[in-house]
Design a binder for these strands. Sequence first.
DNA 1: ATAGGGTTAG
Length: 579
Amino acid sequence: MMSDAFLGNALIHAYGKCKCVEGARRVFDDLVVKDVVSWTSMSSCYVNCGLPRLGLAVFCEMGWNGVKPNSVTLSSILPACSELKDLKSGRAIHGFAVRHGMIENLFVCSALVSLYARCLSVKQARLVFDLMPHRDVVSWNGVLTAYFTNREYEKGLALFSQMSSKGVKADEATWNAVIGGCMENGQTEKAVEMLRKMQNLGFKPNQITISSFLPACSILESLRMGKEVHCYVFRHWLIGDLTAMTALVYMYAKCGDLNLSRNVFDMICRKDVVAWNTMIIANAMHGNGKEVLLLFESMLQSGIKPNSVTFTGVLSGCSHSRLVEEGLQIFNSMGRDHLVEPDANHYACMVDVFSRAGRLHEAYEFIQRMPMEPTASAWGALLGACRVYKNVELAKISANKLFEIEPNNPGNYVSLFNILVTAKLWSEASEARILMKERGITKTPGCSWLQVGDRVHTFVVGDKNNMESDKIYNFLDELGEKMKSAGYKPDTDYVLQDIDQEEKAESLCSHSEKLAVAFGILNLNGQSSIRVFKNLRICGDCHNAIKYVSKVVGVTIIVRDSLRFHHFRNGNCSCQDLW
DNA sequence: ATAGGGTTAG
């Protein structure tokens, strides 16, 4: 029993700061007399440790015990309502604040601005903001975020530039809100620009800046910029921040370097479910199914409970590595052992598991037995496999479903067309093409790119715009001879399969991914691997050709296409030719 | 003594 409330409250606070919920709770339970500070400290400890529900519970209990909340209590419990999107409780607290004369309090109002921004609309947030007697930078940051999270990006930026004229000095968090706002609204390049501005004005990016900015490196797939950020994290002692480290793990994987991704992951001391999921997804997209299963095992062993994202990652890892029985077993264990009911995504992953392994009829049966409407990704997995395993009947069925679900996706028409052409069903193929034309859908042009030094070089089919075009084509000719003597045969199917007239005329040699690979090898600068990115799926002949290139030249070639990473090494690809 | 804004995975 502890009778010194002063000491007890200080201890609860200290435990809370160290994220030790159990310690705080023990002291709290031991207190003979609990005052408003004890209750407030305990509930805000829960909120700050990511347990908003428990925080709210303590807040309610406080009322039943006849202790009246003050403005500190209210401003610390409101973020819990925001996080839970619990508008009902939030409004009740708003009412309480009005009735008890706390509505002029800066902290309470700022918390209310954020609550309404998150749960309702800019309008409501703005109403509270406009009625405030005084505003400081925190309230401004709240209203800025209100615009950004409610798809009013331009207005948010406009408000940001008005801040200084209203006599409010932006702080670190303002810049974080702006950078986060750019990212949330798909303005990746703008986020890069804003980070530069922030630094130029002398603000120091912190772990939150880093966490919200790193996805920009992942989206732009700029390993170079990602490494710069990593250096910054290292130099500024941010390597203890779980969120920033997790963002680094994802960035490295997305930029094609799974080894560095793993190195960062291994440095994380207390891995949470998001960190584990990130590492699992990273390995899944690089086709390391066996590693995915090992990670899943270690995750369970370290006592972290898997969630629905975990299973999406694990199952997609199984599909990319032909691990059918393993995938099926894990799928069946989801609800039974882990209390995670499979959703449409998980079902789609299982369709992919069967499809990639060539068990197309099982995949089709599985789709038909789904308890919910199959999504485009389920039918898309089946259609993709129909091309690899040359199954025209199922291709037609899945393509027709896809034409209903997503009539404007050109990829589905092109896939069906290609499958029909390969099967030499010319008239049906032209029907597919006519359908596409009637609906006014045009094929997305294939495009590949890679980073050399600080520049990104882009290639389209038959590209002659590169400064080194002559060198590239000569090199490809030279390489072609060596590849042929190593056993490479160009697959002319893929010439026929191209839809556009100009593309038909071009030889296989000029596909964008081949040009990018050649350019990469010519600019290796002593490195032993290159990383190429493509917007569509890699072409079948290119896939085969690059296997030979990796052998003849003796380099590792990593190609990220629209579905996954392919690691070409010594004549083989990590996808086991399930491209 | 207790407080508001900015964060990672499909």
